[in-house]
């Protein structure tokens, strides 16, 4: 079967968290969810790789988590509201995580926001995003 074409797949720099992604990222997201408990945050910090073994992550997902590849986690089925809990465990705010995902320094990102944020012009479709 041909994959179903999704009209939102043309939005650049964006992984829409739909049911397909949610199935793929179940392990990543449930791991992140476990970090809502202080005891689990401590256990994870004590031995990250060991802690992750309790969740059904693929080797790729495990690497993405251990290396804090925030965009890769989203591509592999993670959702930002879940990965934010990993960010929180690392002491990162949503804005600090966003800066990392855009490849900017925290200062550059904060300055962009203060100047009114990223314009939608040039960011609506993948074709205009590349230019």
């Amino acid at each position: 079967m041909q994959p179903i074409e999704k009209e939102y797949s043309d939005i650049p720099g964006t992984t829409v968290f739909d049911a397909d992604q949610s199935r793929k990222g179940y392990g990543v997201n449930m791991f992140c969810m476990s970090l809502l408990k202080e005891a689990n945050r401590k256990a994870f910090k004590a031995d990250e790789a060991l802690y992750l073994k309790a969740f059904k992550l693929t080797p790729e997902q495990t690497d993405a988590v251990l290396n804090r590849e925030w965009n890769r986690m989203l591509e592999l089925g993670g959702n930002i509201y879940f990965t934010a809990k990993l960010g929180a465990t690392d002491g990162l705010s949503f804005q600090q995580m966003a800066a990392k995902m855009t490849g900017s320094t925290q200062q550059e990102y904060a300055d962009m926001m203060l100047a009114g944020g990223r314009s939608p012009n040039g960011a609506r479709t993948k074709s205009e995003w590349k230019k």
Partner: peptide, 17 residues
């Protein structure tokens, strides 16, 4: 209102919208 906090397009704001 307008915001994107995920991925490389994070930071998007559309005041007109």
């Amino acid at each position: 209102m307008s915001h994107q906090i995920s991925g490389p397009r994070a930071g998007l704001i559309n005041s007109e919208f």
